[in-house]
Amino acid sequence: MLLTAESMKAPVNKIISFSNVDGPGNRTSIFFQGCPFKCWYCHNPETIHRCNNCGACLETCPASALSMIDGKVVWDKEKCVDCDTCIHTCKFMASPKIEELEVAEVIERIMPNRPFIRGITVSGGECMLHAEFLKELFREVKKMGLTCLIDSNGSIDFSKHEELMELCDGVMLDVKAYDPVFHEALCAHSNHRTLNNLHYLLSINKLLEVRTVILPNYPEENLQTVTHVSEIILDKCDYKLLKYRPFGVREEALDKMGRIIASDEECKRLREIAISKGAIRTIIV
C-alpha cells in the first residue's frame, strides 16, 4: 500500500444508520462498491462493478443530479431524489451514486448513531476488497467502543490480513455453493478461497455465522452445500438458511433461478439435515 492512512479512500455505495438485519443488535451498515463475484441471484447487482463513465445514466436522471466532468460521472447528492432510475439504466452492474470516502469521513457518519448502536457491519459488494481501509476504519471504530463485523463472500484470503482479523469481532460468511463447478456457474468465480476461509475463520474463532441461500430449482446442490457446511461448522457458529426470493433479481437471471420463493418444506427439510449433521444452530430466515 502506497497510500497513507490519512489519504486512503474507499468507494462507498451506501451507509445505513440503523440496521437490525446485519448482525446482533442495532448496527450501522456500510456497503462498499465492487465485488469479484457475479451471482445470478444478486439482489444489488449495482454494487458489483465500478462505473466506467459511459454516461448512459446521465440522460435518464429526472433530477439532473448527474453530470460528466473531465470524463467522469459526478453525482450531486443534494439534488438526487433517490429514484434509482440511474441504477436501472446502467447495463454494467454499476451505480453512479458512489462516494469515495476517507476513514475520517466514514467515522463522521457513524458518530451520530453511536448512542443507538452496538457496532458496525461492513458489507458490499465485497468489503474485503478494501481490507487495508477496513483495518484503519476498525481501529477508529474500536476507539468509540463499538464492535466491528465483516459480511463477506470469502473471495479474499482472510489469513493474509491478520491485523484486521484481530480488530474484527466476527465474520458473517456466505457459502453460496459447495460444489466447485456449480459455484463457478452460479457466481462466475471459484469457491476455493471461500472454503479455505471457512476453515481458517473457524480456527481463529472469528466465524459468527454462515449463510446459504436455498434455491428453488437446485435441490441437489442445496443438499450438498448444507450437508458439507454443517459437517464443518458443527455447533461452532450460527447457520442461516436464507430463502431465495426473486424480488430485485435481474431479469436475465430469473429464468435460471426461478420466479418463486424457496419453499418452506424444502428449507425445513434442509434444516433438519443440518441439525442431524451437528449444525444445531441452524435457522431459516
Binding site: 440503523f18 437490525n20 438485519v21 446482533p24 443488535g25 442495532n26 448496527r27 453511536r114 448512542p115 443507538f116 448502536i117 452496538r118
Partner: peptide, 16 residues
C-alpha cells in the same frame, strides 16, 4: 422485521 430483533430495538431505546 423488528419483531425478530427486539434487542436491536432495545439498543435504540437505550440510546434514545
Amino acid at each position: 422485521t423488528w419483531l425478530k430483533t427486539p434487542m436491536a430495538l432495545v439498543d435504540i431505546i437505550k440510546g434514545a
